[in-house]
Protein backbone atom coordinates (compact mmCIF):
# COMPACT_ATOMS: atom_id res chain seq x y z
CA UNK A 1 0.00 0.00 0.00
CA UNK A 2 1.21 3.47 -0.84
CA UNK A 3 0.43 6.04 1.81
CA UNK A 4 -0.98 9.30 0.50
CA UNK A 5 0.36 12.64 1.66
CA UNK A 6 -2.31 15.28 1.12
CA UNK A 7 -1.66 19.00 1.58
CA UNK A 8 -4.66 20.70 3.09
CA UNK A 9 -5.31 24.30 2.18
CA UNK A 10 -7.77 26.22 4.32
CA UNK A 11 -9.31 29.08 2.43
CA UNK A 12 -10.84 32.30 3.68
CA UNK A 13 -12.11 34.54 0.91
CA UNK A 14 -9.40 34.60 -1.75
CA UNK A 15 -6.60 33.64 0.64
CA UNK A 16 -4.87 30.59 2.03
CA UNK A 17 -5.08 30.80 5.81
CA UNK A 18 -3.76 28.78 8.72
CA UNK A 19 -4.65 28.85 12.37
CA UNK A 20 -3.98 26.90 15.50
CA UNK A 21 -6.73 24.59 16.75
CA UNK A 22 -8.86 26.01 13.90
CA UNK A 23 -8.59 29.52 15.39
CA UNK A 24 -6.59 32.69 14.87
CA UNK A 25 -6.38 32.39 11.10
CA UNK A 26 -3.32 33.94 9.51
CA UNK A 27 -3.24 34.83 5.85
CA UNK A 28 -0.41 33.04 4.05
CA UNK A 29 -0.99 33.88 0.40
CA UNK A 30 -2.76 32.80 -2.75
CA UNK A 31 -4.03 29.22 -2.53
CA UNK A 32 -3.52 28.43 -6.23
CA UNK A 33 0.16 29.22 -5.92
CA UNK A 34 0.59 26.79 -3.02
CA UNK A 35 -1.55 24.16 -4.79
CA UNK A 36 0.61 24.28 -7.91
CA UNK A 37 3.80 24.10 -5.84
CA UNK A 38 2.52 21.03 -4.00
CA UNK A 39 1.31 19.40 -7.23
CA UNK A 40 4.74 19.83 -8.78
CA UNK A 41 6.39 18.50 -5.64
CA UNK A 42 4.52 15.22 -5.56
CA UNK A 43 1.32 15.87 -3.56
CA UNK A 44 -0.87 12.78 -3.84
CA UNK A 45 -4.10 14.75 -3.61
CA UNK A 46 -5.17 18.22 -2.50
CA UNK A 47 -7.79 19.34 0.00
CA UNK A 48 -9.41 22.78 -0.09
CA UNK A 49 -11.38 23.66 2.99
CA UNK A 50 -13.47 26.80 3.13
CA UNK A 51 -12.76 27.96 6.66
CA UNK A 52 -15.75 30.26 7.01
CA UNK A 53 -18.40 28.92 4.64
CA UNK A 54 -20.33 27.00 7.23
CA UNK A 55 -20.46 30.10 9.42
CA UNK A 56 -21.43 32.77 6.94
CA UNK A 57 -22.84 30.67 4.12
CA UNK A 58 -20.60 32.11 1.45
CA UNK A 59 -18.68 30.07 -1.04
CA UNK A 60 -15.86 32.00 -2.60
CA UNK A 61 -14.11 28.70 -3.17
CA UNK A 62 -15.63 27.87 -6.54
CA UNK A 63 -13.41 30.12 -8.64
CA UNK A 64 -10.31 28.85 -6.87
CA UNK A 65 -11.46 25.25 -7.41
CA UNK A 66 -12.04 25.88 -11.10
CA UNK A 67 -8.62 27.41 -11.65
CA UNK A 68 -6.87 24.69 -9.66
CA UNK A 69 -8.67 21.83 -11.42
CA UNK A 70 -7.45 23.12 -14.79
CA UNK A 71 -3.79 23.15 -13.83
CA UNK A 72 -3.32 20.33 -11.35
CA UNK A 73 -4.07 16.77 -12.42
CA UNK A 74 -4.38 15.02 -9.08
CA UNK A 75 -7.54 14.41 -7.05
CA UNK A 76 -9.00 17.50 -5.43
CA UNK A 77 -11.27 17.27 -2.41
CA UNK A 78 -13.31 20.33 -1.46
CA UNK A 79 -15.14 21.00 1.77
CA UNK A 80 -16.67 23.76 3.86
CA UNK A 81 -20.30 24.79 3.93
CA UNK A 82 -21.71 22.10 1.63
CA UNK A 83 -25.27 21.49 2.77
CA UNK A 84 -27.10 19.61 0.02
CA UNK A 85 -26.77 17.33 -2.98
CA UNK A 86 -27.09 20.46 -5.14
CA UNK A 87 -24.23 22.20 -3.29
CA UNK A 88 -22.09 19.12 -3.90
CA UNK A 89 -22.99 19.01 -7.57
CA UNK A 90 -21.87 22.63 -8.02
CA UNK A 91 -18.47 21.92 -6.47
CA UNK A 92 -17.98 18.77 -8.55
CA UNK A 93 -18.91 20.68 -11.71
CA UNK A 94 -16.27 23.26 -10.84
CA UNK A 95 -13.71 20.45 -10.99
CA UNK A 96 -13.55 18.84 -7.55
CA UNK A 97 -13.26 15.04 -7.50
CA UNK A 98 -14.49 14.55 -3.94
CA UNK A 99 -16.25 16.59 -1.32
CA UNK A 100 -15.78 16.64 2.43
CA UNK A 101 -18.90 17.11 4.53
CA UNK A 102 -19.02 17.64 8.28
CA UNK A 103 -21.64 19.99 9.71
CA UNK A 104 -24.45 19.18 7.27
CA UNK A 105 -23.90 15.43 7.65
CA UNK A 106 -24.14 15.60 11.43
CA UNK A 107 -27.26 17.74 11.25
CA UNK A 108 -28.88 15.39 8.72
CA UNK A 109 -27.05 12.06 8.29
CA UNK A 110 -29.43 11.08 5.46
CA UNK A 111 -27.45 13.54 3.31
CA UNK A 112 -24.59 11.01 3.26
CA UNK A 113 -26.86 8.37 1.77
CA UNK A 114 -28.33 10.76 -0.80
CA UNK A 115 -24.93 12.09 -1.81
CA UNK A 116 -23.24 8.70 -2.07
CA UNK A 117 -26.12 7.41 -4.21
CA UNK A 118 -25.96 10.44 -6.46
CA UNK A 119 -22.19 10.64 -6.90
CA UNK A 120 -20.75 7.34 -5.70
CA UNK A 121 -19.36 6.59 -2.23
CA UNK A 122 -15.78 7.32 -3.23
CA UNK A 123 -16.78 10.94 -3.92
CA UNK A 124 -18.12 11.45 -0.41
CA UNK A 125 -15.58 12.11 2.34
CA UNK A 126 -16.90 12.67 5.84
CA UNK A 127 -14.93 15.21 7.81
CA UNK A 128 -14.75 14.57 11.53
CA UNK A 129 -13.25 17.30 13.69
CA UNK A 130 -12.82 15.65 17.06
CA UNK A 131 -12.11 17.32 20.37
CA UNK A 132 -10.44 15.25 23.08
CA UNK A 133 -12.08 15.98 26.41
CA UNK A 134 -10.23 15.66 29.71
CA UNK A 135 -12.35 12.60 30.58
CA UNK A 136 -11.02 10.80 27.50
CA UNK A 137 -14.06 11.18 25.23
CA UNK A 138 -13.65 12.24 21.62
CA UNK A 139 -16.48 14.51 20.55
CA UNK A 140 -17.03 15.61 16.94
CA UNK A 141 -17.45 19.38 16.60
CA UNK A 142 -19.17 21.23 13.78
CA UNK A 143 -18.88 24.67 12.20
CA UNK A 144 -15.09 24.56 11.87
CA UNK A 145 -14.52 23.42 15.41
CA UNK A 146 -16.85 25.88 17.11
CA UNK A 147 -19.94 23.95 18.12
CA UNK A 148 -20.38 20.77 20.11
CA UNK A 149 -22.56 17.86 19.03
CA UNK A 150 -22.66 15.57 22.06
CA UNK A 151 -21.77 12.61 19.81
CA UNK A 152 -18.94 10.11 20.11
CA UNK A 153 -16.41 10.39 17.28
CA UNK A 154 -15.88 6.63 16.84
CA UNK A 155 -19.61 5.86 16.81
CA UNK A 156 -20.22 8.69 14.37
CA UNK A 157 -17.47 7.42 12.04
CA UNK A 158 -19.02 3.95 11.97
CA UNK A 159 -22.47 5.37 11.30
CA UNK A 160 -21.20 7.68 8.55
CA UNK A 161 -19.57 4.76 6.74
CA UNK A 162 -22.76 2.69 7.07
CA UNK A 163 -24.59 5.58 5.43
CA UNK A 164 -22.20 5.55 2.48
CA UNK A 165 -19.10 7.61 3.32
CA UNK A 166 -16.16 6.54 1.16
CA UNK A 167 -13.40 8.01 3.32
CA UNK A 168 -12.98 9.73 6.67
CA UNK A 169 -11.00 12.96 6.97
CA UNK A 170 -10.17 12.96 10.66
CA UNK A 171 -8.95 16.12 12.38
CA UNK A 172 -7.80 16.36 15.96
CA UNK A 173 -8.84 19.84 17.06
CA UNK A 174 -6.51 19.66 20.07
CA UNK A 175 -3.46 18.98 17.91
CA UNK A 176 -4.42 20.98 14.82
CA UNK A 177 -1.86 23.62 13.89
CA UNK A 178 0.27 22.99 16.99
CA UNK A 179 3.04 20.98 15.35
CA UNK A 180 3.09 18.74 18.42
CA UNK A 181 2.32 15.51 16.61
CA UNK A 182 -0.86 13.63 15.75
CA UNK A 183 -3.35 12.18 18.23
CA UNK A 184 -2.34 8.58 17.55
CA UNK A 185 -4.97 7.07 19.82
CA UNK A 186 -7.79 8.89 18.01
CA UNK A 187 -6.52 7.88 14.57
CA UNK A 188 -6.06 4.23 15.51
CA UNK A 189 -9.48 3.94 17.13
CA UNK A 190 -11.23 5.19 14.04
CA UNK A 191 -8.95 3.53 11.46
CA UNK A 192 -9.59 0.16 13.08
CA UNK A 193 -13.33 0.77 13.46
CA UNK A 194 -14.13 1.51 9.80
CA UNK A 195 -13.41 -0.45 6.60
CA UNK A 196 -12.78 2.67 4.47
CA UNK A 197 -9.59 4.75 4.30
CA UNK A 198 -8.89 7.24 7.08
CA UNK A 199 -7.00 10.45 6.35
CA UNK A 200 -5.34 11.71 9.54
CA UNK A 201 -5.03 15.44 10.05
CA UNK A 202 -3.85 17.77 12.76
CA UNK A 203 -0.50 18.07 14.49
CA UNK A 204 2.26 17.28 12.01
CA UNK A 205 5.34 19.21 13.07
CA UNK A 206 8.09 17.02 11.62
CA UNK A 207 8.38 14.06 9.24
CA UNK A 208 8.53 11.46 12.03
CA UNK A 209 5.07 12.57 13.23
CA UNK A 210 3.72 11.52 9.85
CA UNK A 211 5.42 8.15 10.11
CA UNK A 212 3.84 7.64 13.56
CA UNK A 213 0.34 8.42 12.27
CA UNK A 214 0.75 5.78 9.57
CA UNK A 215 2.46 3.02 11.51
CA UNK A 216 1.10 3.47 15.05
CA UNK A 217 -2.15 5.19 14.10
CA UNK A 218 -2.82 2.99 11.05
CA UNK A 219 -3.80 5.99 8.95
CA UNK A 220 -4.21 5.27 5.23
CA UNK A 221 -3.35 8.82 4.31
CA UNK A 222 -2.05 11.88 6.09
CA UNK A 223 -3.21 15.41 5.51
CA UNK A 224 -0.78 18.16 6.46
CA UNK A 225 -0.79 21.93 6.33
CA UNK A 226 1.50 24.16 8.43
CA UNK A 227 4.63 22.05 7.99
CA UNK A 228 4.29 22.45 4.20
CA UNK A 229 2.86 25.96 4.07
CA UNK A 230 5.72 27.50 6.04
CA UNK A 231 8.24 25.77 3.81
CA UNK A 232 6.42 26.90 0.67
CA UNK A 233 6.20 30.40 2.13
CA UNK A 234 9.98 30.55 2.34
CA UNK A 235 9.99 29.94 -1.41
CA UNK A 236 7.25 32.42 -2.25
CA UNK A 237 8.13 35.21 0.07
CA UNK A 238 10.71 36.58 -2.29
CA UNK A 239 8.77 36.46 -5.54
CA UNK A 240 5.08 36.37 -4.74
CA UNK A 241 3.57 38.71 -2.23
CA UNK A 242 0.11 38.92 -3.66
CA UNK A 243 -2.63 38.60 -1.15
CA UNK A 244 -5.52 40.85 -0.43
CA UNK A 245 -5.89 42.85 2.72
CA UNK A 246 -8.72 40.64 3.93
CA UNK A 247 -7.98 38.80 7.17
CA UNK A 248 -5.01 38.83 9.48
CA UNK A 249 -1.93 39.64 7.45
CA UNK A 250 0.28 40.79 10.32
CA UNK A 251 2.16 37.54 10.19
CA UNK A 252 3.11 38.05 6.55
CA UNK A 253 3.98 41.72 7.13
CA UNK A 254 6.34 40.76 9.92
CA UNK A 255 7.95 38.18 7.66
CA UNK A 256 7.33 35.76 10.48
CA UNK A 257 8.36 32.16 10.91
CA UNK A 258 6.81 29.48 13.04
CA UNK A 259 9.22 28.04 15.55
CA UNK A 260 7.26 24.99 16.74
CA UNK A 261 7.43 23.45 13.30
CA UNK A 262 10.12 22.04 11.13
CA UNK A 263 9.00 23.42 7.74
CA UNK A 264 9.62 20.57 5.32
CA UNK A 265 9.00 20.08 1.58
CA UNK A 266 6.98 17.12 0.33
CA UNK A 267 9.87 15.23 -1.32
CA UNK A 268 11.83 15.38 1.94
CA UNK A 269 8.89 14.01 3.91
CA UNK A 270 8.40 11.21 1.40
CA UNK A 271 12.08 10.32 1.35
CA UNK A 272 12.04 10.14 5.13
CA UNK A 273 9.03 7.85 5.48
CA UNK A 274 10.25 5.63 2.63
CA UNK A 275 13.62 5.29 4.36
CA UNK A 276 11.67 4.09 7.40
CA UNK A 277 9.95 1.39 5.36
CA UNK A 278 6.65 3.08 4.48
CA UNK A 279 5.87 2.96 0.75
CA UNK A 280 4.58 6.03 -1.05
CA UNK A 281 4.60 7.53 -4.52
CA UNK A 282 7.69 9.40 -5.64
CA UNK A 283 7.66 11.83 -8.52
CA UNK A 284 10.74 11.50 -10.68
Amino acid sequence: MNIRIIPRLDIKGPNLVKGIRLEGLRVLGKPEYFARYYYENGADELIYMDAVASLYGRNSLLEIVERTARETFIPLCVGGGLRSVDDIRVVLRAGADKVSINTAAIRRPELIREASRAFGSSTIVIGIEAFHHADGRYEPYINYGRDRTGLDAVEWAIRAVEMGAGEILLTSINQEGTGKGFDIQLIRRIAEAVPVPVIAHGGAGKPSDIYDAIVDGRADAVSIASILHYQCLEQVRSDEKEFTAEGNIDFLRRGGTFSKLQPTALPVIKEYITSQGVACRHVL
Partner: peptide, 17 residues
Amino acid sequence: HPHEGERDLKIPQVGWN
Protein backbone atom coordinates in the same frame (compact mmCIF):
# COMPACT_ATOMS: atom_id res chain seq x y z
CA HIS B 1 -8.50 -9.71 1.15
CA PRO B 2 -5.56 -7.43 0.42
CA HIS B 3 -3.19 -7.30 3.37
CA GLU B 4 0.33 -6.42 4.42
CA GLY B 5 1.57 -8.67 7.22
CA GLU B 6 -1.16 -8.66 9.84
CA ARG B 7 -2.60 -5.34 8.67
CA ASP B 8 -5.69 -5.72 6.47
CA LEU B 9 -5.74 -3.10 3.75
CA LYS B 10 -8.77 -0.94 3.15
CA ILE B 11 -11.32 -1.60 0.43
CA PRO B 12 -11.79 0.35 -1.78
CA GLN B 13 -8.17 0.87 -2.68
CA VAL B 14 -7.90 4.65 -2.76
CA GLY B 15 -4.58 6.03 -3.86
CA TRP B 16 -1.49 5.61 -6.01
CA ASN B 17 -0.20 2.27 -7.16
